[in-house]
Nucleic acid binder design. Sequence first.
DNA 1: AGGACTCTTCGGCACGCGCCGAAGGATCGC
DNA 2: GCGATCCTTCGGCGCGTGCCGAAGAGTCCT
Lengths: 236, 236
Amino acid sequence: MNSHVAHVEGPDLAALAGLLADCTRASFCLALLDGRAWTAIELARHAGVAASTATEHLNLLVAGGLLAQERQGRHRYVRLADPDTAELIETLASMAPRRAAPPCSLPAVSRSRALARARTCYDHLAGALGVAITKAMTDRGLLDWEQGLTLTGDGTAWLGELVIALPPAKRRPPVRSCLDWTERRPHLAGTVGAALCRHAFDSRWITQIGSSRAVALTDDGRLALRHHLGLTGDFT
Amino acid sequence: MNSHVAHVEGPDLAALAGLLADCTRASFCLALLDGRAWTAIELARHAGVAASTATEHLNLLVAGGLLAQERQGRHRYVRLADPDTAELIETLASMAPRRAAPPCSLPAVSRSRALARARTCYDHLAGALGVAITKAMTDRGLLDWEQGLTLTGDGTAWLGELVIALPPAKRRPPVRSCLDWTERRPHLAGTVGAALCRHAFDSRWITQIGSSRAVALTDDGRLALRHHLGLTGDFT
DNA sequence: AGGACTCTTCGGCACGCGCCGAAGGATCGC
DNA sequence: GCGATCCTTCGGCGCGTGCCGAAGAGTCCT
């Protein structure tokens, strides 16, 4: 990275951090936190740069192993390389300073309100809704925070009632806490968080708002959350 | 960071990553992972830059909240701001690419061997020794990896036998897995990892080698590890 | 075939950032 | 007090890097 030797053995921290040290590349990664694959031009428009610029950034991110790509016809789809990468970006984002500039236009305000209320975070739920679900699961003894975050026996049974199947345990932990940007409190991630989110979409408890990461709670969803978790909040 | 607007609300990922995106600053942070406070000139010499350059970097890192400083007479002591920061840097380091250049000189080789064998990692034990202890604790049922990493009842009792007291649970989890750079396998971090490391120093199971992060296992330490964990390895 | 669209390559520009050394302030030890 | 040491400030330099637009390759649709 620098011209200097830096003569150090060990991990090249600067190279990895350098990939995220650019506003445009960071903006790409945050956008990709929704877990979907984006085309190059979508990301370019999102970040407000020329397509050629986006190409260069994507080349760097892919070469650095943060992004995986897939070419389909004239499209170049990119997504975060794996859940580890997503968690790294989440962690970094939760520790990063907030940006100064407040969103002033009316549509921008309502958009950020919707995001703060309920959104996806890579493959699980975040925002006030995600935090509330996590809290309700804790209160009902489905999650335990005593020794780090764990799923209790009741929690396993509860997932069984909902007919939510978990993939066999591999590198990714079943439950993991992820610090929420807007609520500043933890919400549920890991394979259980992902499975729960997928179930919520499949059962139409929630629906995506437009093409953003924001989600809306349906009437079915409100009933289901009250029934399964005793959640009475509104989140509209 | 960039001249461009980047018009995005939310966390300023690039600003945080930018702090670590420089070889010299990264080298500082990795050095500080030993958990000690270093003076500005020590870090400058370590990274091979002028004192004035180190000052500028330290100003950035302190302003960015990654480092805490303390002035004592003519010395400026800096250390990592908190365990969260240390964990962030560990995580980043474990995902970063290895540096190409192999250490060739004889002292450099023996130094890196010593580091690979046993060293501190912020406030807990790492290297072959750290990984072996973690594995032994798992084999004896003191740690459980089923639902993320947890300390078992036996584990709590075992700590009691050793008269190792834990601080009251706060934000930092009691046990946490930290991926080892050299072994590529997890070792024990968190408050239990820290308490165990402190106990090992206090009981003279291990001693610091010179002023590096490398540690040497004493004869007492070898006996203790065999007695308490059934560990028979050498680690000299 | 032709137009629309996506992506890539290339040259060129400008700014930021990391580096240094010299000079000066602050503190310690003798 | 005096030199030694640690740190900081400042000016100056050069390279890297992020940006763009123009041109072109590849793909899809009609």
